[in-house]
Amino acid sequence: MPSVYIPALLRSATGGQELVKVPGATVREVVASLEREFPALVGRLVKDGRLLPNLAIGIDGEVSFLGLAEDVGPEQEVQFLTAIKGGRSEALS
């Protein structure tokens, strides 16, 4: 089962757990499992099927180009890294 490194600022949602193991063969499936297990994470990682704009997906420490669609192996670790760009125009939110 892949492991997920929970960013410190979201750890209240996992009862303080830093590393959790959840099933999934893609990042999207992993996130779905996470949300099932830790409902407080709903909306904190993915919204309307899209990764939040401030986040990027890391697999074993390297930024993934495919993001939620990236494959995850059972031995791999998923991380939620800081996206390169933030910024939000009110007209769009």
């Binding site: 600022l9 800081t82 939000r88 007209a91 939110s93």
Partner: peptide, 23 residues
């Protein structure tokens, strides 16, 4: 129309800070 994103969460405050994140 720029609103700061604070720790990934949108705020309502008009600002020159587009994003504040913490690791």
């Amino acid at each position: 129309d720029l609103r700061c994103t604070e720790f990934g969460q949108p705020t309502t405050e008009a600002s020159n800070v587009a994003d504040h994140f913490r690791q």
